[in-house]
């Protein structure tokens, strides 16, 4: 197994971890972290595919940088919504998943 396959498989497993966290964990901040893990895992997978062959392909790298920046702005909006939700209800959980509500 080459180093690149190692990173690609790591990326695949990271996506798996992220999906588990996004669906199985209820605290919304934890879900934002999990969502970032999914994106990050896909970037690693994509980046490993860009590094195959003799020279590295710069196009995927540029797209990954764009992706990292967009992920941050989406996360900032998401945590803004979480804080607003928590101030109204006192809980950072979705109402239909909140056992104590």
């Amino acid at each position: 197994m080459t180093g690149l396959s190692l990173y690609a498989l790591t990326g695949a497993v990271l996506v798996g971890f992220g999906i588990y966290g996004l669906l199985a964990k209820r605290h919304l901040l934890r879900r934002v972290i999990a969502f970032n893990l999914i994106g990050s895992g896909l970037f690693v997978f994509f980046g490993a595919s860009a590094a195959r062959g003799e020279t590295v392909d710069p196009v995927p790298q540029a797209l990954i940088i764009t992706g990292i920046v967009v992920a941050l702005s989406a996360s900032a909006l998401a945590v803004g919504l979480i804080v607003a939700k928590a101030r109204v209800s006192g809980r950072a959980l979705l109402p239909e998943e909140d056992d104590d509500a």
Partner: peptide, 25 residues
């Protein structure tokens, strides 16, 4: 992965700013 441009973006944005964002939240 020979992506130094991405490494800089990851350290600054992925770890740095996202980290501050999550901690302040």
């Amino acid at each position: 992965l020979e992506a130094v441009n991405v490494a800089l973006a990851e350290a600054a944005i992925g770890a740095g700013l996202t980290g501050i964002l999550l901690l302040t939240t």
